[in-house]
């Protein structure tokens, strides 16, 4: 089911089952029906990254919705429009899964004509959104934050990831808000 929250850069695709599970908003972060802990998430969770024009990306997301609904693909995220703060001229679509199922997920993408083959672990992304990380620093610069605001943003980011992952490695992973 496509979840389009106005105002968000990203549009998500979740299964109805995971959306309806109010007791566990991140039940899709699983491998073979077993929820991943924070430690397992940082070890195994990642995404296939694909770039294309906006129309093609949105069309691909609609096709992938069927696979998310039947549970073959855990989750999809795609850009509403190219991200200008990162100088992107194409939209990005990320297909999330555990690395132990990444080959079977890529076969689905390949069957839909996707050729770009680029796997990124979420731990790499988390690192780059931490203080000093490439994405966070670029975002701070692109948004023209003053030193005080920039330092506050860095500290908030550090606290967010610490609380989300590093303080409780054995608890079920709840993901992080993007």
């Amino acid at each position: 089911m496509i979840m389009d929250r106005p105002g968000s850069q990203y549009i998500f695709v979740y299964s109805r089952e995971s959306l309806n599970d109010s007791s566990d908003r991140a039940s899709y972060i699983a491998y073979r029906d077993k929820r991943l802990t924070n430690k397992e998430y940082l070890e195994h969770w990642g995404k296939w990254v694909h770039l294309d024009d906006k129309e093609n990306i949105h069309d691909l997301a609609r096709k992938l919705d069927l696979y998310v609904e039947e549970g073959t693909i855990p989750c999809v995220k795609f850009d509403r429009a190219p991200q200008q703060w990162a100088d992107m001229d194409q939209c990005v679509l990320c297909v999330y899964c555990d690395d132990r199922q990444r080959d079977e997920v890529f076969e689905i993408l390949s069957g839909m004509g996707v050729k770009i083959k680029a796997w990124t672990y979420d731990r790499e992304v988390v690192e780059k959104w931490m203080p000093g990380g490439q994405y966070l620093e670029r975002w701070i610069t692109a948004n023209g934050l003053k030193k005080e605001e920039a330092d506050r943003t860095r500290e908030e980011s550090r606290q967010k990831f610490k609380a989300a992952f590093f303080d409780k490695p054995d608890e079920p992973c709840q993901g992080w808000i993007q």
Partner: peptide, 12 residues
């Protein structure tokens, strides 16, 4: 072998 060259920010 297949080589892909992407902008790093695509993975953000």
């Amino acid at each position: 072998d297949e080589v892909d060259i992407l902008p790093a920010f695509a993975a953000a």
